[in-house]
Simulated assay, not measured.
Amino acid sequence: MLISPAMNAALREARFEGDAPLDAAGTRRARAAAGQVPGADLYVSGTSERCLRTAAALGLHPTPEPSLADWDMGRWRGKRLSEVSDGEPEAVASWLADPSAAPHGGESLAELSSRVGNWLGDLDESSGRVLAVAEPAVVRAAIVHGLGLPSATFWRLDVAPLTITELSGRRGLWNLMCGQVL
């Protein structure tokens, strides 16, 4: 089960920001949803402040998992998508069209998907039910990898704040339940 973190200013502004804190409204919503979080055998979290603070507001004490870190956007970090699109339209077009492109100097979509896919692949039945608080890009990568979808599908998925996406099954045979609101 993957819970997307609560809202923050960076998300509202469509800014590449992997470590922005929650805002007051996001914290309130996460606290209000705390009683609706399903139980699990293992609790993990992405390493961003937003994931860790969402987990805390939900009453969880997860282990930070580096494989679930947000997408490394390199020199675009902190910039708005509109700003990058205006200043580097060819780079943005390449990034959107080619999963191996990383014009920002960070991680390509292919690298993100591989990292998240390796984490999924390392889960086994002894892990039991796993609940992770993870950034939307990580959730999208998990869906694409888990279901064996084409890379371009990543751009067509929206992951709303404080929703649960559930991949059930096992390596190579995942099923998807998406968008359950907490």
Rank of each mutant, 00 (worst) to 15 (best):
H104W: 04
A34K: 11
S168A: 15
D41Q: 10
H61A: 15
P103A: 10
P62V: 01
L11Y: 05
L162R: 07
W174D: 12
L22V: 07
V84T: 04
G117P: 03
A110W: 02
R170P: 03
S4Y: 04
W119P: 00
G35W: 04
R115Q: 01
A132K: 04
T63D: 12
D124T: 12
H145I: 00
H104P: 05
S127F: 10
G106E: 05
C178H: 15
D86H: 08
G121K: 06
L2C: 02
A20R: 09
G87Q: 15
N8A: 07
L52E: 11
G18F: 02
I164M: 14
V92D: 08
L58T: 09
T54L: 06
K79I: 00
G46Y: 05
A132D: 10
H61R: 15
A141K: 00
W71Y: 12
R12Q: 15
E107P: 01
L149K: 01
L131F: 08
L167G: 00
R50N: 13
Q180S: 12
W174G: 10
A102E: 02
P99M: 09
A30Q: 09
T163N: 00
D98C: 08
C51A: 14
L120C: 07
F16Q: 02
R77P: 01
R29C: 09
R171C: 08
R80V: 05
A152E: 13
E135D: 15
W71S: 02
L42V: 12
H145M: 00
L60G: 05
L123Q: 13
R140G: 02
R171T: 11
S151K: 03
L58F: 07
G87Y: 03
D158V: 13
L149Q: 04
M7V: 13
S114L: 10
L81I: 13
A97G: 10
L109E: 08
D70V: 05
K79E: 12
P136F: 08
A30F: 08
M177E: 15
D98E: 15
R115N: 04
V116G: 03
